[in-house]
Design a protein around this nucleic acid. Structure first.
Lengths: 335, 335
DNA sequence: AAGAATAAAGTTACCGATAACGTAACATCG
DNA sequence: CGATGTTACGTTATCGGTAACTTTATTCTT
């Protein structure tokens, strides 16, 4: 074994005068070896600086991959960012690796990503999307691996679902806003109100208002990605329409903060003239002059629980098909 | 070929009565086949819905992997998020896949991530970190693959470097702030001023002030991760010390916005009483009542250029060892 | 038209780990 | 004490591509 080529299982085995199967068993923590053999193997592995070759392991008989695919709407959102951190960390601790992708709320991009992922023969897949294309569903079926759908709770999960109801988040916020006396509420949305989880919150919000015998007085749905700008200009446009809402519900906190910035600039008092509420529990929302009314999402917990559930399913341990991660309405003082 | 087991190259070849090598050549776009053969292969591939097995391809002779490892400080930052989006997208377009990790500014976490990555035999590695551990450097050498160091420009890159000088960013901002008449400047930092790119900006800033014959009147370096909170409370603590700075330079825009929120709440006028400047060119910074003075970073361009350079190096095409991505000081109106 | 050059394939030998199976040595038990 | 586990290994086949090499068919040259 020269210094330039990295040692393989076989090198370790040859050095010790055992079969590579024995070394493999020790390293995987399988059974069928004595303590003496284990110690000798571990020592030799440490001495040579042996690095396992996951490629070879995953390539052989199926069911030995430790690769997990994870796809979220976008990587630029702190919410999905902290979710991914938690997923990454939890999976790493359990001995799995992550391949991350984003779909920008486009089912076809998700499908393209999944097709690429499939060629790496992952052990399982985690998806954060409201809707999947037919091709995606077919691919998932063909792959025959555990699937965790996270973020929104679907009524009928493909396999596992971990998340919460965006519909209920919207419903709850509507009740909260109406309970504080708001009657003429507007909504500022994004993404052209495509079938995303944000759209579900919107629908829940409508339902909540309907229950209270009210309806939106005005809505402004931008085509853009959600963000501070979108919230700022969406609010400006909405107010130019002279519908005079007494409160605005935003697609998310970034947009609400953008809206807050516009309202402040326009001399509108929050919440006296117009109340606002966001969604997501962004850190920035807590440092506004008034604490933003929002729904806090425990992304770290969600990521951890989802990763653990997916691996349990993978290992054949019992898991609930659906796990609800409770969210929390933060009253704040902007409504 | 029954419906349940996915077709392999060999299945395609057998169906067509050619060797699997011919099919492989067609699919990889290598040379050595006729147009007729190409068409027949492509047709059969489409008909059977053949999915290549990247695992097998990467497992064979080295140099055939299409996996690229990318490690950034954290996934929760929109800046790194958009960088990763660009890298992901560019690499995907070039036929490569990404394995993403984060190191939280800890060299040991980067090393642990790299060790895991190495077991997947990637074709190349992209790192965003100021410092690497000895183990990381040894691993990179042993792996023998192209390495792109991004974000900050190192003086002596391991292989390739794509980015900009954080030191110069700090230097330039110091000059800008002094040119607008500020003499008593404070600094609010994070991460305990560890050797990160933020620390480099700090050093450049000090240099810039020194050139103008000035020095920081006060600094407040938090141990935490940078963020809105950190900026808010860091500013509060700083002002409680009664050093009365006439301007504050922040670790980044999030912290500057946090600081702005505190100043506003405390009745301090920006920039009349105290001017502020951040770094990063966050979207949110542009919707403050006054546009934040900051340094804009073209993350998307950086990600695209870095990915392209890395692949050029991988393919043996000529590339500059060092590529500078110009940043832009946004004057704003907060100083 | 013979020989050289080129194009279009086919053949072979892996890459490194693991599942499945085989087996020798030893313990256990009725 | 023979029959039957149990433990601790060893052996073999194999996953699906690809580089390197070889062979065959075709075209070109003089």
């Amino acid at each position: 074994m020269d210094k330039h080529s990295k040692p393989s299982l076989e090198d370790i085995a040859r050095n010790l005068g055992v079969s590579k199967m024995t070394v493999s068993r020790v390293l995987r923590g399988a059974s069928g070896f004595s303590d003496t053999t284990r110690d000798r193997v571990m020592q030799e592995v440490a001495r040579t600086g042996y690095l396992p070759n996951r490629l070879a392991a995953a390539f052989g008989k199926s069911g030995t991959s430790t690769l997990i695919g994870v796809c979220v709407p976008r990587l630029t959102s702190p919410l999905f960012g902290s979710l991914l951190e938690a997923v990454n960390q939890t999976l790493a601790r359990l001995g799995y690796q992550t391949m991350i992708g984003s779909h920008n709320q486009l089912p076809d991009e998700e499908e393209a990503w999944l097709r690429t992922l499939a060629s790496w023969k992952p052990a399982a897949v985690m998806l954060a999307a409201r809707t999947h294309s037919k091709g995606t569903l077919r691919l998932l079926r063909d792959m025959g691996v555990p699937v965790a759908e996270i973020w929104d709770l679907t009524t009928k999960p493909i396999d596992l679902a971990i998340g919460f109801s965006h519909f209920d988040n919207g419903l709850e916020m509507a009740r909260c806003m109406m309970a504080t006396g708001h009657k003429k509420i507007g909504y500022v949305g994004a993404l052209g109100n495509r079938n995303t989880s944000g759209h579900l919150r919107y629908q829940g919000f409508l339902r909540g208002m309907g229950e209270g015998g009210a309806a939106l007085v005005v809505e402004e749905i931008l085509q853009d990605q959600p963000g501070f700008y979108a919230g700022y200009y969406g609010t400006e446009t909405m107010l130019a329409r002279n519908k005079e809402p007494d409160a605005i519900y935003y697609h998310d906190d970034e947009m609400a903060i953008g809206g807050y910035a516009y309202l402040t600039k326009a001399g509108v008092r929050v919440p006296d003239d117009i109340g606002i509420a966001g969604w997501g529990g962004m850190e920035a929302a807590s440092i506004l002059p008034r604490r933003l009314t929002t729904t806090a999402i425990p992304t770290t917990r969600l990521g951890k629980v989802a990763a653990e559930a997916l691996i349990s399913r993978l290992r054949g341990d019992p898991v609930d098909d659906v796990t609800i991660i409770p969210t929390r309405l933060v009253p704040g003082s902007t409504i």
